[in-house]
Each structure stands twice: as structure tokens, then as C-alpha cells.
Design a protein around this nucleic acid. Sequence first.
DNA 1: TTGTACGCGTTATCAA
DNA 2: TTGATAACGCGTACAA
Lengths: 334, 334
Amino acid sequence: MATIKDIARVAGVSLATVSRVINNGPKVGDETRARIKEIMKEMGYRPNANARALVNQNSTSIGVVIADLSDPFFATLAHGVEKVARQQNIQVLMSSGSIEAETEFKAIETLLEHRCKAMVVHSKALDDQTLIDFASQVPGFILINRYIEAIADKCVWVDNVTGGRLMAEHLVSLGHKKLVMVASKHQIDDPLARLDGIRQYLKQNNIELAENAIEYSTPDQEGGEIAMQNLLAKGIEFTAVLAYNDAMASGAMSMLQDHNLRVPEDISIIGYDDVLLARYCRPKLTTIKYPIELMATRAAELALSFNAQNAETKASTTYKYTPTLIKRDSVSKL
Amino acid sequence: MATIKDIARVAGVSLATVSRVINNGPKVGDETRARIKEIMKEMGYRPNANARALVNQNSTSIGVVIADLSDPFFATLAHGVEKVARQQNIQVLMSSGSIEAETEFKAIETLLEHRCKAMVVHSKALDDQTLIDFASQVPGFILINRYIEAIADKCVWVDNVTGGRLMAEHLVSLGHKKLVMVASKHQIDDPLARLDGIRQYLKQNNIELAENAIEYSTPDQEGGEIAMQNLLAKGIEFTAVLAYNDAMASGAMSMLQDHNLRVPEDISIIGYDDVLLARYCRPKLTTIKYPIELMATRAAELALSFNAQNAETKASTTYKYTPTLIKRDSVSKL
DNA sequence: TTGTACGCGTTATCAA
DNA sequence: TTGATAACGCGTACAA
């Protein structure tokens, strides 16, 4: 592959001149510039991004750390980042971390080796301090979907407690009092916060959500099916279901329908996230919108803004997003 | 950030020695090695991937070019690549191309600037020759979901004609004769090939699929809804629907149900791809499995295998995959 | 076993 | 307007 040196030799000029042409620098004779450009085209010259990054100390790439690309939620997140990266002519370095401390750590580490100055990381397994340390090493380190006090100005997160409250509120406002929940068995903050919001609201309204009315399982469709099956097996009476997320809701819904229970006529159900399938499934899922793409976009812009000299230091702002209720067809008035 | 030079200075040894330690090279005294490792840890040393790539002429990364990460199909593809990359400790560079010639071209070009020696590209807009040219420049250039004779040994593709035939065959074998299709309006090979397979089979069995029984729209859920709406509006009689893909099938199904037509009791419908939603939607979609993750995995392995010296040149083999029928609940016997 | 010195492709500084 | 030349961080013959 032709290098700047080859071009210079063929053109009979120095490296410096070619470099100026490449970077549209000033102080180059018009005809020289034209001739060099011509030669570059002919020889199929392509600047070497690695060499550039080396000398410039700034990489033209943004790193993304997520758990699993095959999960629609993360795919959407990645897509948001990718979108703004493309606009700014920036490369995306993708690392999956699978919600295990070790892999998450390694994913960030690898990005660091590539001298990423900007990264959007979704980490659940790493502890606060580790993340704070990383943040201090990377100018454009942005944490998405997590809040850490000490680096609040680098966190783009969603208020899951409010989200949980919203779910409960909607069901209760329609007269539902006998509730069950298909919950995530992961002991991380998202499930905890949502459940917290739900409980807060119910308590205020004197409605009970007994511990045995909650079934914990994996946060996917299968988990939803299993959890619902268990709930049904226990013979608990209920008119509405709170699901940890849309996938579980969908699974639970299938299971209900398999037992000849109609949604929403017999049983109402509400999801969380508003991923694609919420609109695909039948009936369309009433759910809580988690504005993840918007957040990812914001996170990427934020991360990249630190690359620019103007090291935007509005430590004052915090990037908290609030989920909203999306009414569709899976919940009905009692 | 500490460099190899800093380590050498602190340790009181030469650069070469440190370099040897880093690369687990031989010929280093045990205690020297231990001491240097200690210092590296203390100083938080991290090798500079850019510098390495520069001197080694081989980047430790694999490029991926796809249309749109938010599309489950592409997300799954990307996931497949990412999986094998992680196993081999390789970074993934992601570029979206949005099925436009210019962006696809630019995406590949950018990857080239990063000196990617391996890449998995999904391109529909670029012409054969351009792709062939790229393939000759990149040792590990693998085309996924497309077949070009001249670089057959670099193509990992699926036999969409057989896929199309499978769809038609399944419906016909259950007695369906009045068929309609919700098709993709994109004039690229996938839709064409599938339609081709369908037509071949129907012709052999003397069943007609009139041009006005086909509605073309965007290959997503909304497109499926619109296409079905048009079909319904035209008052065409039919007992079964062929959909370009699962998303369109899902949209069409919604529209049918909105018109009080039951699936599969009144109308049967068959999709294509077998993405997640095929199992999520209700009734579960009978569809054609497009083994995209498997293919992506294979493509990535292939691409990466060229990085190794043993430039595996089995130009004989071609990587053709055959789709299979997945029976679920959206098709019934007439 | 350890060190010296050069090169990888670019950019940037300073002269000319 | 152009050209030498020194970095950037690392790997590696070759020498010691």
C-alpha cells in the first residue's frame, strides 16, 4: 500500500509537501497541489490511521462497551452511538462485556490500548471505584444506564424508580388491585430500582404486592414464560401483571394465552423498555419507554465533545432521563 | 500514559528488554522480568495498539460493514462476528453503510485506512467490480450474504432461491392455492432470488401468482402492514400470505387481525429469516431459517484466518448455506 | 542475557 | 512556497 513517502518520490517533492496536501494545509502551490492529488489518486493512496493516531495522540474513534449485541436493547444503544460517530467521521470500536466483571474490565482495557479518548460504556458488573478510576484516565469516558455520584457529570441514566412507579400507577388507576410481577433475577440496580418504584407507589395506595406474588427469572422471553407458569401454578389470583421488561412481558403473555386467559380482557399486562417487539407482539404491549437511543446519542456526543479542545466541564449538569408511559393494547380497565 | 520508554528508565534497563518482557519473549533474566512486570503494573502501563499496528503491519482488528445495527438481522450478524473476535482477542471496528453505494464505499475505505486485514462486509449497493477490487487489496476480505463468481472463495452466502421455493412448497403442500405476497420494494438480489424461488415452484405446480397479488413495500413491519392493507383493499381472494421477511409478516399479520381475520384459521402466513420476533409474535411465525449468526461466525473465522501466515487458499470451497423451514403456528392446512 | 539503532507512516517545527 | 528532520511508541535485527 502506497505511503506518503512513495507519493513524494514519484512527485519529486518532499514528505512535508505531500502531508500539507493531504491535510489541506496552506502554503502549497496550486499546480503542485493538483499534481500531487493526481498522483495520490493514481497510486490509490490511503492515509494510515494508525500512524496518524500515533503522532497526533488523538484517535478518531469512539469505544462502546455493551453486554450483548444480539439483545435488541443493546443493539439500539450501539446504533445510537454509531449514528453520531458516523456524522463526525469517527470509527466505532465495539467490545462486548457480557455483564461479567472480568470481561467488562478487559473490554475497557482493550479500548484503552487503542487509545480511545472517548467511550460509552454500559457496565453493571464493575464496582464504582473501578469505573471512577477509568473515568479519570479517559477524557471522554461516559457511563450509560448507571449513576455514580462521584462522576455524575459523566453519567447518562434513566430514573428507573419513576419508571416503576409509572407502571404501578397506570394499572392501579384502571382499578387493578390484585397484582403479580414477573421480575428479573439479577441483583443489579435496574431491577431493584423498578421494583422499588412499584412498591413505593403501591404502599402509598395501600395495595399489597406479596413476596410470593413475585416470580424471579431470567430477563428474557423464556424467563417470562417460566415465571408466569410458576405464578399460575401457585394458584394466585390476579388481574394484572407487572413485567420487568418487554421480553418477559411477551413470554408471560404467551403463557397466559396458552392457558386460555385473554389479554387484556381477562388479564392486563405491562412491560418496560419499549423495544421493537412491544409493537410486534399481539396484543401490542402497553409499556414504559426507555429512551435508550436518545440517551446513547447524547452519551456519544458528550464523549466526543471531550475530544475537542474545549473540554466542556459543566460538572453541574447531570444527564437523567425520565421514562414515559406508552399506552397500547395489553392493559384494560377493570 | 506510561510508555515502554518510561518503564525502561525506571527499571534501569533498555527498551529492548522491556519489549521482550511485554511480548513474553525469551532471553530475559527471571528476576529482571519479574521486576519489570512489577514496574509495569505500578505505572499502569498499557501497550499502544496503534504503535504496534504500525510496526507490525498487522492490525489486531476485524472490520464489519453492515447496513443498520438497529435491525435485528444485522445485529445478529454483528454479534456473530463479535463473538469470534473476542475469542481471538481481536477488536471489532464497526461501520454502517445503510445500503447506499456511497456510504458503503466510505465504510470500507475507512476500515482500510485503519489497515484492517480482515473484514466481513455486507454490501448490496456496491457493484461487483468494486467489491472485487477491494477483495484484492485486503487479504481477509469476506463478503457475506452475497455471491460473486470471481471471488467465490470469499463469499459466505445463502441460497435464497431454495428458500423461496421452500416457502411456496410448504404452503402448497398444505393445500393453499390462492396466494398473495407482501414483498420488498428494494431491487436487490435477496428479494429477487426469493421471489424467483417462489415462482419456480409455483410454475411447476401450475399455481398462479399474479403480479397484482404482490404488493411491494419497505421490508419492515410498517411495510408489511401497508402492503397487506393494499392487498385487502384490492379485494383479492387468498388463503395464504408469503412475506419477504419476518418483519413484514408480522406487520401483515397485525393488519389481518385488525380486519378480524384469524391467523392461521382464516389465513396462513409464512415469514423468512427467523429472527427473534418470529418466536415473540402471536401466533408464532412459521418461517424460513436464515442461519445468519452461523454464517457470520464462519465469515469472521475465515476473514481472520487470512491474518495468520498460512494464507489458506482453498479457492475450491464455496460457502453456501441452505435455509430451512421452521414450522410454528402461523400456517395451517387448508 | 542485555543494549543499540533503525524503521513503521505521519505530523509539525524550523529553516531555507 | 518548499524541504529537512525530529518526534510518536514499539518491535527487532544485530551487536555486545
